[in-house]
Design a protein around this nucleic acid. Sequence first.
DNA 1: TAGGAAACAAGAACAATTACCAATCATTTC
DNA 2: GAAATGATTGGTAATTGTTCTTGTTTCCTA
Lengths: 138, 138
Amino acid sequence: MQLTPQMRLTTQRQIILEELGKVTSHPTANEVYDMVRKRLPRIGLGTVYRNLELMADSGIILKLEVGGTQKRFDATVDPHYHIRCLSCGKVDDIAIPVMSDINKTAADLSNYQVLGHHIEFAGICSECNKAEKEELIN
Amino acid sequence: MQLTPQMRLTTQRQIILEELGKVTSHPTANEVYDMVRKRLPRIGLGTVYRNLELMADSGIILKLEVGGTQKRFDATVDPHYHIRCLSCGKVDDIAIPVMSDINKTAADLSNYQVLGHHIEFAGICSECNKAEKEELIN
DNA sequence: TAGGAAACAAGAACAATTACCAATCATTTC
DNA sequence: GAAATGATTGGTAATTGTTCTTGTTTCCTA
């Protein structure tokens, strides 16, 4: 968006960005669609996809290609890691310091031009853990 | 497969496992299908999906939910990290020592029951790098 | 305020995966 | 060894998540 000045800041884009910024979760395109639709009932799912993609390309949001079937989006662009619940699928940030030095190690150990890395932890979130325990009781 | 004794070791399963073991790449279900079909021309794609899923569940192979649109499968089950080419999408192993200790750190920093983690590097493989340079010349 | 580019909504198309089902095959029981 | 049982298969349909297309609207610029 900053990158190409001829890009217009439409109401749709503004609201998508606002809604994404409101949450600390990492919603899927569909979840963003649901959020935005409360304020802009006539918006199309295609518009949401198109603009999330566009914003990710221009670097103002982050597209997460984490495990699970769907892509997720993140308004926080500075590097950080994620943890995903294997039970409900939700993705949270995790405050582990970013290891920028391992990129260099990776470059040395492979014949790739290394551009970055991502760490994804997998586990069970507290809600699902609790739910599971309650299920065992019944 | 080991888990449920009534599960049969069919020809299809045997060959899927053999073919997956032959390669060091991390084929998608479709690529496995292509490999297996050379020896078992009448196998169905569904059978491949079904059995890869089953083997992943029982722990004899690994299902990689890395970036990109497709899931990939790996006959090597001991923990290791991956590097993915952003240009052609292929996934290689990378010999960076596994940091098993960061799971504990993650558990301390989150309210998840942490079960594991995965690191995925992103970059451009040597083939794509070369191809890109040649393209610049022309 | 007319012309043209950018963006839109709606829905079709698409790719990857999963679900279903009748036919087949292996195993157990008689 | 034949019948019953249950797992597994191939083929195909359905589903899911995403992208593309089409015709329309909106906004800038002259």
